[in-house]
Design a protein around this nucleic acid. Sequence first.
RNA 1: GCCCCCGUCAUCUAGCGGCCCAGGAUACCGGCCUUUCAAGCCGGCGGCGCGGGUUCGAAUCCCGUCGGGGGUGCCA
Length: 506
Amino acid sequence: MPGTRVRFCPAPSGWLHVGGARTALFNWLWARRTGGDFVLRIEDTDADRVSAESAEGMLEALRWLGLDWDEGPGVDGPHGPYVQSDRRLLYEQVVNLLLKADLAYDAYETPEELEAARERAAAEGRPPGYDGAHRDLSDEERHRYQREGRRPTIRLRTPDEGTVAWDDEVRGRITIDWSTIGDFVIWRADETPTYYLANTVDDLAMGITLVARGEDLLSATPRQLLLGDLLLRDRLLDDALSAASYPGRPADAGRPGWAHLPIIVGADRKKLSKRHGDVAIDAYRRAGYLPEVMVNFLALQGWSWDGVTERMTADDLADRFSFDRVGSNPAYFDTDKLRAMNGDRIKELDDGELAERLQPILADADLILVPPEPEHARLILGLAPLLRERIQILSEAVPLVAPLFREEVVHEDAAVAKHLRAPADRVLDAAAAALEELEEWDVASIHAALDGVAEQVGVGRGKAFQPVRVAVFGSAVSPPLPETLALLDRATVVARIRAARDLVHG
RNA sequence: GCCCCCGUCAUCUAGCGGCCCAGGAUACCGGCCUUUCAAGCCGGCGGCGCGGGUUCGAAUCCCGUCGGGGGUGCCA
């Protein structure tokens, strides 16, 4: 029984999005669960839409999630290289052998001609697939097209009848008629391989045992099954591998199994895309979602353990994950629940951990420097227990604590209008005086002093605390007052209270 | 159009013939607590798309129907 080898192979265009991350996660989990290998392969065959920055961003996002790979970019393995643009020679060899065996042929239609043919077919109610017009060109016809300056694509011959079937790990047996599948392009006119070719060749060459990918690739499977059979049947792949001097396939390699994961959809039930809002993993990182929560939540999109247990660490998941518990209906990406889970996780963090995770977020908001100044570090640590129960995502801490890191207080109009009115003037005067006279600047003393102010002015605690809150924070909402004031220096607090005295009206 | 996939509370899901007049979580609503905002605790609302079968018995099996999605590319 060969070891499990799974893979994640993003096309580096744009950011790693939640659907891709979920696919990567399921593969990673299966590798960890089975003690197998997780291979990362960059599929950059379509030069028009890929970029190195995108590839780097995807690796970064994967690293952030903690999905480490056993082979791939930056991690040498026995079946590299792991970037398809570095494997060009291999694909060329494969195509040549396919051509020589007459399993594939050159076709000279231009994209415009094909498009026109598709439109015609649609208008006449015929299937829009490739009609095989250039399937059996004579040498004469071929030369004529070449003289016209046409560059051919190479298409693989597909059966005209019969069926193809496979047992999908998620969906069970799937059967498709060959009559619905036309000869397809494996090599573009610009001499680059298509997904069908490169992906199939590499999965086989790298000894992948299970292909787990999005449902949107379900209908690509028959073509890859066929190509794979052809490649293995007459040792074409092995010949190409040695002709191009690539490492051979693992000794025990066979054909991979398949698992098609349900897609993740937006609120409109369509495949999740940019117009649905934040779909990039990086956006969630910046907003202050914790990676372990993203992993936990993503695992629950389409998979469940017992229907009751939801909070699981990556290790828990790796212990429990299997494709037979992956559902087959699309999941709507519901960030409400993500937020809730994130908030719960934040509550589990101790002060030091929370403070540390808060730092990059506060730095992003220009509240602190990258290694924070010592007094800021102390302040954040002191704030951590006050923030813990109040935020679900880290960035929510920013408005709550910003006034504590800034020189100037910005007083919100609504807060001033509501809370800085008589007898707030008396409250502020009394508070400034009382705080100034305190012997100890600590929570208990401050609390007692403010309670004393309430009594002195003859108002309830709320009426006493709110004006002080607005004076110091500029806002009617803040972390608990005495606890927070104790973290600031007394002079600042008293000065702010005095300054707010002028804002009191009516 | 054709092919394929899917259909349990608003959302993620459990359920694989009786344990379910359907369970958990999130969201929402109400109460308690309370210095703001939260948190916490307690309670509540809410679903098997529809129609036929099969069966003593169906959310679970079969057929049909409707609805949604994916594919149909020299994208992946």
